[in-house]
Amino acid sequence: NFPIYHTNWLNRRKIIDMIQLAADKYAKGILLDLGCGAKQYKQLFDGKVDEYFGLDLRLRGAHPGETEPDMLASALQPPLPSNTFDTVVSFQVLEHVPEPKVMFREISRLLKPDGHLILMAPQMWHLHEAPNDYFRYTRYGLAHLAEQSGLNVITIQPISGFWIRAGLVTSYRIHKILLGQKIRNLKAVQIGIQATIVISNLFFWSLDKIWSRPNDPINNLLVAKKCSSQANTNPK
């Protein structure tokens, strides 16, 4: 987890909590992480799945405790056999996929009957990883994509409402403005930045607890299931 003085602490804490709840309830067997990056969420599935297999389009720099993908390939054309995985997960990837319907169709193909998809995508977030940043997704958009690919929606949960988003913007602005000063390398200034962000994070975290605004989420978490009658008979 990020320390409380991190600019993304508010959102990251919510994300970890929601993924953990979904993992505890739905993850099992052989798991595929589509767009796994450095497998930063792998530890949340420890003890719940038998195998954790990561696929990404390219290698990324791994941080301590993180690892590289097991396979380099596109989520739109994963060279994997049908009906292979009990669980497919994908976190903060869908917005970077130019053909989301194709990705959902591939997820449905790869899942075993009665297998589960756990997917998170942003509804409100700034432009990032340009130019490969294409879409934002409401709960209704995610439900439509899942249903069109033959998956039954179990739940869609909003993550991080209005106050968390306001807190993130505030923390990022504080960090950017103060680091832009010539005195940014002074230890006292760094401590001051961290202290200010801590105060901001706690303030907006409290507002979110008191007055939640779930209709303004930063992210939505989808859990869907492939029905037992939808076994793919045309494996790749």
Rank of each mutant, 00 (worst) to 15 (best):
K25Q: 13
E51Q: 12
C227A: 12
K25E: 13
N11H: 05
T155C: 04
H126W: 11
A62D: 12
L202K: 15
S228H: 12
E68A: 13
G47M: 03
N185I: 01
V97K: 01
D216H: 02
V88C: 00
S171L: 00
Q157R: 11
A166H: 02
Q157S: 11
D208W: 01
I16Q: 06
T7S: 03
G65H: 15
G47E: 06
H128Y: 09
V153T: 13
N11Q: 06
R165F: 03
E106N: 15
A166V: 05
F85T: 13
I159R: 02
E106T: 11
N152M: 10
A62W: 15
G29M: 05
S90N: 10
D86R: 04
A130H: 10
Q157C: 06
A146P: 13
V97Q: 03
I15Q: 02
R13A: 05
G65M: 12
R136N: 07
T7A: 03
V102R: 15
L10Q: 06
L110C: 11
N219W: 10
L145Q: 07
V49N: 00
R136D: 07
Q123C: 05
I174R: 00
R13K: 11
Y41K: 05
A188K: 13
N11G: 03
S212Y: 08
P217H: 05
F203G: 06
K187W: 05
W211A: 08
K187T: 12
E95V: 12
H6W: 10
